[in-house]
């Protein structure tokens, strides 16, 4: 497969051939969250089904090659072929990896059978994966990301039209969500910068204990403006365009519901980014049982609170993208 990385793009934040998808390109949503066990796969399975039920053609992709189980949540037996075949270059045609579910409009690409030694695709393979995902015969491609904040996960998150973050109302989950956001945000910013000096400044700032005392993106912006006002402008523009969306999972109280607003406020005031609070799903013992029963809760307990909230989120997702910009076409191959 030809790889055409748009190196040194003149204006990384401007529109490009790939950030303005043609009418038939699939919209990509990524489900991340930093921490394991917060409900990414549960959320992916249910939102994928909810979107499919709304009449959209949906492909749910298990990009968590190290802990693949999306297929199980959707009641699909371990498929013979999976994304691992694409990553290992045994198969270049993603369409051949599609597996039907018993739900109309919903197909999956599983993440099983990965040779864990090669579970992380190299950068170029990630780029071609992203291109191929957009070309799938679907309206929406929903990527279930693994835990952690390593480069591949961050890129899947950044390249998506919408990066979704699942957070539980627990200190550990909130903390990991910030770690993840921060890592993704700085990666995005660094990729947007053209000049070498400015890039290395961003890299320095990624270390929170940097010597220059740069604590927040606002500090960094000031430093960059001193070096090069045009890069500063580009930086500010990138900040504006980085618009992840959060979902609070396992909400038990009204306080938990408000956590979403609090996180979004902190993101504004501290990181200078707009985080859209997409919605919340209440804690429900049946949610855990639904995973065991290998049936999404919106199917097994239709009409339950959790199902109602999940469908509400799906409706919002189907409504519109949040204005963020995909990024992979601006990624240069050296990273």
């Amino acid at each position: 497969m030809a790889i055409d990385v748009n190196r040194g793009a003149q204006s990384p934040v401007g529109p490009s051939a790939f950030s303005k998808p043609g009418a038939r390109e699939a919209r990509i949503l990524s489900m991340g969250g930093g921490k394991g066990g917060v409900g990414k796969t549960f959320m992916t399975a249910n939102l994928a089904l909810a979107l499919a039920r709304m009449g959209l053609r949906v492909v749910a992709v298990d990009a968590d090659l190290e802990g693949a189980n999306l297929h199980t949540c959707l009641g699909v037996r371990t498929p013979r072929n999976s994304l691992a075949d694409f990553v290992a270059q045994r198969e270049d045609d993603l369409v051949k990896l599609l597996v039907p579910t018993h739900h109309p409009n919903l197909q999956i690409i599983a993440g099983t059978h990965a040779n864990l030694a090669e579970a992380q695709p190299g950068h170029l393979r990630r780029v071609s994966l992203m291109r191929a995902l957009r070309k799938l015969p679907a309206d929406i491609v929903l990527l279930d990301l693994g835990a952690g904040s390593h480069a591949a996960v961050l890129d899947y998150f950044l390249v998506a039209d919408d990066g979704l973050l699942v957070v539980q109302p627990e200190p550990t989950s909130v903390e990991n969500a910030y770690t993840f956001l921060r890592a993704a945000f700085y990666r995005r910013l660094r990729l947007a910068m053209v000049g070498h000096d400015v890039r290395s400044l961003v890299s320095q700032a990624m270390d929170q204990r940097n010597e220059r005392g740069i604590r927040t993106p606002f500090d960094l912006l000031r430093e960059i403006e001193l070096i090069d006002p045009l890069e500063g402008r580009r930086f500010a523009e990138t900040m504006r365009r980085f618009r992840p969306r959060i979902i609070i999972n396992e909400v038990r109280t009204a306080e938990d519901v408000k956590l979403g607003f609090a996180i979004s406020s902190v993101c504004r005031k501290y990181f200078g980014i707009e985080v859209d609070y997409l919605g919340y799903v209440n804690f429900d013992e049946a949610a855990r049982q639904s995973v065991a029963a290998r049936t999404p809760i919106i199917e097994s307990r239709e009409g339950s609170d959790a199902a109602i909230y999940l469908q509400r989120i799906a409706k919002k997702l189907a409504g519109a993208s949040n204005g963020g910009e995909p990024v992979m076409d601006t990624v240069d191959a050296s990273t």
């Binding site: 204006s11 934040v13 401007g14 529109p15 927040t216 606002f218 006002p229 045009l230 402008r233 580009r234 500010a236 523009e237 900040m239 504006r240 365009r241 504004r268 005031k269 200078g272 980014i273 707009e274 993208s321 204005g323 910009e325």
Partner: peptide
């Protein structure tokens, strides 16, 4: 310094976010 060739895109974006000391 607004609009020096940077494409804002066709979707509405929020205004520039400011650090707390600069916020009203």
């Amino acid at each position: 310094m607004n609009g020096d060739g940077v494409d804002i895109g066709d979707r509405p974006l929020t205004q520039d976010l400011k650090a707390l000391p600069d916020q009203d």
